[in-house]
């Protein structure tokens, strides 16, 4: 279908965008790359009266590493993340994830800020933000605030952003050296939204986990940090421990049934991702076999 009619305004600066947002509030939507918003408009899932185009605000673009914090401008595109040496060396999880976000033509226009503000529960980046303990930098006309990823995602397409606010950057603490990452998603076609996926960050202490953050997506109305990892931290990992963690994971999840996958299928994927992640991070492939569910 075609998008409904709307008025179009091109912001000349961040201040201008904030002024337009504060003037038009709920009636307006921010347009950055448009790779989530335009499908929503074309499918008539959204019908804002006004689009405020921030796509040309170069001040919102770029990746900067300072004092062990990586700051990513909201207009940084997926293709920029894939090409960035800083991301590769500091946040490999984000690079792994970016390769799974849609297709090359979409990655050339889609922006990380647009992706996060859209908050699709099946999207890769929100789960990465949770795994990496990122902070969203949010501006409004009268100031700036920071919101942790765990408080930012509030539900399907819902975030902590107020109508007058703009997500301008994401701050991600650089994981300590020696940390390990794992990313995998189950999809019907490469680049499609996941049926279930996992973004993980682990810190090892010898052969054990000192910390393990398993952030699932397409498993509920927002990315989800599994509590079941408490069964795996600070203990010797065996097939039995993994089975315990899988059972605990199963008990805490409440996945939806929809046209993408049944709840039972998602539970199966989630358990499988847990064992594969642990086996992969510990470099003990036999663990994934022992723990097959």
């Amino acid at each position: 279908m075609k998008a409904p009619a709307f008025s179009y305004m091109r912001a000349e600066s961040v201040e201008h965008a904030l002024e337009l947002l504060s003037r038009h509030g709920d009636a307006a939507k921010i347009l950055s790359g448009g790779q989530s918003l335009l499908p929503a408009l074309n499918l008539r899932l959204a019908a804002p009266a006004i689009l405020i185009d921030i796509g040309r605000l170069d001040e919102l673009r770029g990746i900067d590493l300072r004092d062990n914090v990586v700051t990513i401008g909201a207009l940084t595109r997926h293709v920029d993340l894939l090409a960035s040496e800083e991301i590769l060396s500091s946040l490999p999880l984000l690079r792994q994830a970016a390769a799974h976000v849609a297709h090359p033509a979409i990655r050339n226009r889609g922006t990380i800020g647009g992706n996060l503000a859209h908050a699709d529960p099946a999207s890769e980046f929100p789960a990465c933000m949770l795994a990496l303990d990122a902070r969203m930098v949010i501006r409004r006309e009268d100031g700036e605030r920071r919101v942790d990823a765990r408080d930012f995602f509030r539900g399907i397409y819902e975030t902590a952003l107020e109508p007058c606010e703009l997500l301008v950057a994401i701050e991600i603490p650089r994981p300590q050296s020696g940390s390990r990452t794992y990313f995998h998603e189950f999809v019907r076609r490469s680049g499609d939204y996941a049926m279930t996926g996992l973004a993980a960050l682990a810190h090892l202490d010898g052969a054990q986990f000192a910390d393990l953050r398993l952030s699932y997506f397409a498993i509920g109305d927002r990315p989800y940090l599994a509590r079941a990892t408490s069964h795996l931290v600070g203990v010797a990992i065996t097939g039995e421990r993994i089975a315990e963690a899988q059972a605990a994971l199963d008990a805490e999840l409440d996945p939806p049934d929809d046209q993408q996958a049944s709840a039972a299928m998602r539970r199966h994927f989630a358990r499988l991702l847990l064992s594969r992640c642990v086996a992969n991070v510990l470099e003990r492939p036999e663990l994934a076999m022992e723990a097959v569910t």
Partner: peptide, 25 residues
């Protein structure tokens, strides 16, 4: 809505989905 790729074009040398790009952009 960006799934099929039939509308692929090049803009400033990069491929894009022209159904997900407004003419004003």
């Amino acid at each position: 809505h960006g799934v099929c790729g039939a509308c692929t074009m090049r803009v400033n040398g990069e491929i894009i989905r022209s159904c997900l790009t407004l003419a004003v952009q």
